[in-house]
């Protein structure tokens, strides 16, 4: 603060502070509080707002338990509220996305941090970054094209003889969504892990090998524990972004893939019931936060480690 005063003078400092305060207050705090307050009130015709029917309750939140559907899992069939079902699948597939992102990012991060020649690293980073310069919408559509029935992926797989008939990728449940989310968010996993591994003293890896450790043991006992905070922060980011993504499921989803954000979106835009939509949004936020905290606790990661 002092530093800023000295550098920019009192006038400009005040302006910057005001802008930041405005941004925080008007674009983050106020909308959230408004939605939070609305989520406890019923959806009413305008004339009845503020009338006797307008009182706080958990009714909007309870709507997730409405409307059972019949599902079967491992040969057992059961009834489950449709929105709860959507929620579980959203969490499940977000976990899958996180897992695949980790499996892809860890070897690459290790390669970038410890193996690649430092002079070629900038080129590699550039190649990773260039796709980010393209808008997320376009990237999702690019995958829509790649995965199309007569698209390049099918052509390639048929060309090398892996499949005989083309596959309807975007009509196979969550396949398209998962692929799209992995592609969109894998870098959010890569960079925290890369940073973490880079800060590991290479001598420790060599010392482990010198003491007789095979490569996987070195990773298990030395590299992975050191990279844990990076892995955790990457995982939290990818998981939260995936569970909260609307664009990718909308573009790459199939008729049988429903993402919880799409349900929220339908409350907002189709039903025009902002109250229930808000309630659903807070359910997603709250449960995801609980889930992530639980995961961090299980893996013994502290929040302060992640912030590093």
């Amino acid at each position: 603060m002092h530093d800023m005063m000295r550098r920019y003078g009192p006038g400009l400092t005040l302006l910057i502070c005001l802008l930041v305060a405005f941004w925080l207050l008007m674009l983050v705090i106020v909308p959230n509080i408004t939605l939070f307050e609305q989520s406890f009130r019923p959806y009413l015709p305008v004339v009845e707002v503020g009338g006797p029917k307008d009182f706080y309750s958990f009714d909007n939140y309870m709507k997730v338990f409405d409307g059972n559907v019949e599902k079967s899992l491992f040969g057992m069939s059961f009834e489950i509220p449709v929105h709860v079902y959507t929620f579980f699948l959203t969490i499940l597939y977000s976990m899958l996305v996180t897992l695949v992102c980790f499996a892809m990012a860890y070897p690459l991060a290790y390669y970038m941090a410890k193996i690649v020649n430092p002079t070629t690293l900038p080129t590699l980073l550039l190649m990773l970054f260039i796709p980010l310069w393209v808008s997320e919408v376009l990237r999702a559509f690019a995958w829509w094209i790649i995965l199309a029935f007569k698209g390049p992926l099918n052509a390639l797989l048929q060309g090398i003889g892996l499949i005989e008939d083309p596959i309807r990728w975007t009509n196979m449940g969550y396949t398209g969504v998962v692929i799209g989310l992995i592609y969109t968010y894998v870098l959010f996993m890569l960079f925290p892990i890369y940073n973490a591994i880079q800060s590991l003293d290479t001598n420790q890896i060599e010392a482990a090998e010198d003491l007789g450790a095979p490569w996987w043991k070195t990773h298990w006992r030395i590299v992975l524990p050191h990279a844990k905070p990076g892995i955790a922060s990457g995982s939290v980011m990818v998981f939260m972004l995936s569970a909260g993504s609307l664009l990718v499921p909308s573009i790459l989803g199939s008729t049988t893939s429903q993402w919880f954000t799409q349900t929220i979106d339908q409350w907002f835009k189709d039903a025009l019931d902002w109250n229930t939509a808000s309630a659903y949004a807070f359910i997603l936020l709250f449960l995801c936060t609980v889930f992530v905290s639980l995961a961090l606790w299980v893996f013994k990661v502290k929040l302060s480690d992640i912030a590093k």
């Binding site: 003293d201 001598n203 420790q204 060599e206 010392a207 482990a208 010198d210 003491l211 007789g212 450790a213 095979p214 043991k217 006992r221 030395i222 524990p225 050191h226």
Partner: peptide, 27 residues
């Protein structure tokens, strides 16, 4: 051979006894 590094390269996330016996653990 066993190399002792210029900066020692001990494993900071393990207690001393696990550091010392890391070579035995991998065996």
């Amino acid at each position: 051979t066993a190399l002792i590094f210029q900066n020692l390269a001990l494993f900071p996330l393990m207690p001393i006894w696990e550091n010392i016996t890391f070579g035995l653990e991998v065996r």
